[in-house]
Design a protein around this nucleic acid. Structure first.
Lengths: 348, 348
DNA sequence: ATGAAAGCGCTAACAT
DNA sequence: ATGTTAGCGCTTTCAT
């Protein structure tokens, strides 16, 4: 008690006036550095000392200041994640497992949205680099050449996700969009479909899946050439409404279509909805394949066939990458392909 | 150039070896504190000096270390947000506007998930308090009495959201769940519905809406007493499948029901789906009201009537609260009721 | 196993 | 308008 009073009295004007490691150390009757060791590397400290420090922590309610720790050690234990936009259910599963896995390892997630103008992207990078995160997880576009250079220059470990780019900045966990598109085309072909069509958001990744889909359709003899596959593009982010509207448009221009590959489950749900409204029988008249395997896919009517992406796995692997790097563990393989899985349900 | 070399040579073993404010100051030929002022309070600095510093920043690619700045100024410019779980589309709109509004003001969002065991909640609090955030935005349960005390003790401004508790910890932005439930009951009554039912997630807020709904139904003479209103509870988080299953159960026990208030739009979409599958005419035989007004609500078939919550407004106001507090501006009103709005579409 | 000294990179306080 | 000094709270390095 006397200790607390005297320390309070001596404290100068600056600072938050909170409890510091020094206070804990004084209460435990050890030096600050010993208190620090007791908290960070308990096995380098005598059992008795440990007990005294732990007791002092409990009595004071001390919580270490991670800004100070980070400054001293050059390890922020902060990880930045950048997504195009937070709404848009696609990346949620990944963010959830990423957050959880990082929390388990004692790291915290900082969230940033890149899906705005390019000038904003620069400001976002400043905000991120300024925090000196131990890693950054990139999802979506955010790769202006200047941005890549800045990240590299800052020496921050980078994990790119949801994609398999040929020239990764650093580490990478994802899957091949081209192959996913091709696999869907093969699936539909195997199910006897002959007039394939695409309903897709206008974002870059979706277009890559479309390319794989179209090329495979041509290869299988389902279309004379690329221009022979009906494509309807709707603005991303995709919506249920976009699916309804898109199907209507598609049927106007290509009424003979017997299968649609949608770039998202939401779009596919819209197609299902519009089909119901028009009395089109799914899957008899029209097969519908979604993308993402969101929670609702299996419960739709009819149950939605789709491409499952292991968002949880992506998040977990991204966390692993960064934590390993931060802890100085060797990273065996910098590129991990988690693949995808076609989930066949009632709709196709 | 000579400057850079000499500074590099002198640099000791610790630290990241990156460019610091000192480097910029030396290059610009001013003292570090002047360089600091040029970046933080440009109008306290002569035009010429400003130009020299800006030039040095541009040439070096300097990005201020916010950990150091935060440590020195006791202002982290970090805001923590706690949600029960990231998946679950309900809070996304809020998170999006919160992130954007904070970014605009130069603050960064740290995300935490509380939706696990109580022991985790404690660890989460430690992680958050350890970062000394300038504010914390709470959504969902996370209010163990001990937790409240710790937050208060840490002196971190707290904004509770999505609710109007009678005893807020600090600041509050939300709406009344009881009133929302009551308003839906009145709406259905006004539309001529007489046998109201509830299909709801088992979370606390939903139950509060249910209470308001039931009480109002009794008051309107639509039920003899509270037990007279059919209620089907499904586990939260709610799903489309839960809606389908729930409606089936509800109709088994109470076939005369002519209106269902669902605790989420997803649940309501499931009800719509199951109704379609069973050939039940919505809204003729059954009115369906959702909650949340998610993006798909208006595009469902039939278009879903629902309760709109201004998630964007909640996020914006929460950011405003915290930034105002951090900048030392007076906060006029610590409690803001953003209300809700019944959106009448085709389903009821 | 424990401690003393010396910073990490920045800004508040007090000059001038 | 600019500079000097002294920390913020912690951890690294080097002793013992």
């Amino acid at each position: 008690m006397t200790v607390e009073e005297s320390s309070t009295a001596r404290r100068p004007r600056r600072g938050g006036g909170g409890i510091t490691l020094g206070d804990v150390a004084r209460l435990a009757g050890v030096s600050p550095i010993t208190a620090s060791r007791a908290l960070n590397t308990p096995d380098h400290v005598a059992k008795e000392t440990l007990a005294k420090v732990r007791d002092a922590v409990a009595r004071t309610g001390y919580v270490p200041n991670r800004m100070a720790g980070g400054l001293a050690s050059s390890r922020s234990r902060l990880v930045a994640a950048v997504v195009p936009t937070i709404s848009g259910p696609v990346f949620m599963e990944m963010l959830e497992s990423l957050t959880a896995a990082l929390a388990d390892a004692g790291y915290q997630l900082m969230l940033g949205q890149s899906g705005y103008t390019e000038s904003r992207e620069d400001a976002l990078l400043d905000a991120i680099i300024g925090r000196r995160p131990d890693g950054i997880v990139l999802t979506g576009i955010m790769h202006s050449a200047a941005g890549r250079r800045r990240l590299l220059a800052a020496g921050i470990p980078v994990v790119e996700t949801w994609d398999l780019t040929p020239t990764p900045i650093d580490m990478l966990v994802g899957f091949s969009h081209v192959q996913a598109g091709a696999a869907v085309a093969r699936h539909l072909h195997a199910k006897g479909r002959r007039r394939l069509a695409l309903l897709s958001g206008d974002d870059e990744r979706a277009q890559r899946r479309n390319q794989g889909f179209i090329d495979e359709a041509v290869r299988l003899g389902l279309a004379r050439d690329a221009a022979d596959v009906p494509v309807r593009l709707v603005p991303a982010p995709t919506t249920l409404g976009g699916g309804r509207f898109g199907l209507a448009q598609l049927l106007d221009t290509a009424p003979a279509v017997d299968a649609v590959f949608c770039s998202s489950d939401l779009l596919a749900l819209g197609v299902l909805t519009e089909a119901t409204a028009r009395g089109i029988d799914v899957p008899k008249q029209l097969a519908v394949i979604g993308f993402g395997d969101l929670a609702f896919a299996g419960d739709a009517h009819p149950a939605l066939s789709t491409v499952r992406i292991d968002g949880t796995g992506i998040g977990r692997q991204a966390a692993q990458f960064i934590v390993d790097r931060a802890e100085g563990r060797p990273v065996a393989e910098k590129v991990v392909d988690l693949g995808f899985q076609i989930i066949e349900r009632a709709s196709g």
